[in-house]
Amino acid sequence: MNGTPALVNDVMTHRVVALRPGAGFKDIVQVMHEWRVSALPVLDDAGHVVGVVSEADLLPEEEYGDGDIGRNGQVRHPAEVRKADAVTAAELMTAPALTVAPDATLAHAARLMARTRVKRLPVVGRDGLLRGVVSRSDLLKVFLRHDDDIAEEVRREIVVRLFGPYTAAIRVEVHDGVVTLAGRVCQTALITLAARLARAVPGVVDVHCALSGPPRRRDRAAGLPTSGAGATTP
């Protein structure tokens, strides 16, 4: 990953299937079944993403097929019942579509999915055209990264850049995605920064930081003069 944050483009599925607004209900279900996906983007004639049809959009057809009439004869969930009458992608889809850019970080995509409680996001370029789809499982691919690869990036992009000629005194180990940093550094103020940067490396699960600053000089004996006659040196 060349020392740069992992981006959506690195992990997304590039070959995807999409719907036209006029796609029928049964056709949508069939495509979802064949492609084993839970949501499908809807494209206009120009290829722009105009909405998304998910399993949640299809369920009202089954859930409210009887109109969901209450005891007093009123429809209890009118919005859902109206959706139960929908038969095309244009009528079923959630619009506008929630999308993410190819150059968005995985952290951004993950936060967006968590906040909106969706499992898949269409990936859309600056031109509004569909580039791919990123799913929750795609975001987890980064954790398949080899430990040696992670350790090399931590050494090259963090340890060397922060501590320069003092890197020989710093040990970097990675086991199952957990990074351990140990040794003495020249500037104690950089320890917290090193741990935070290591945590942001793609594929890192956790960071154990055992770095410490340079040894402190022995304090001068209390009560002895620091200069002139009778002065002592450590």
Rank of each mutant, 00 (worst) to 15 (best):
P5W: 06
L7N: 07
T13A: 04
V17E: 05
P21T: 13
G24I: 11
V37C: 04
D44H: 13
H48M: 08
G51R: 09
V53P: 05
V53H: 09
A56G: 07
L59P: 04
P60I: 08
D66N: 10
D66T: 10
D66C: 04
R71W: 04
G73M: 13
V75Q: 07
R76S: 08
E80S: 09
V81I: 09
V81G: 06
V87F: 12
M93C: 05
L98T: 15
T99A: 00
A104I: 06
H108Q: 15
A110F: 15
L112A: 09
R117Y: 08
R117P: 00
K119T: 10
K119Y: 05
V124G: 02
G125Y: 10
S135V: 15
R136N: 07
R136I: 12
L140T: 15
L140V: 15
E152W: 01
R155G: 01
R155V: 08
E157L: 06
E157V: 04
E157C: 09
G164F: 08
P165I: 07
T167Q: 13
A168N: 13
A168E: 11
V172P: 02
V174C: 00
D176V: 02
D176Q: 11
G177A: 04
V178Y: 01
C186E: 13
T188D: 13
A189R: 14
A194H: 08
A198E: 03
R199W: 00
P202F: 02
V205H: 09
D206I: 02
R217N: 07
G223T: 14
L224K: 07
P225G: 03
P225Y: 09
A229G: 13
G230K: 05
A231P: 00
A231D: 00
T232H: 09
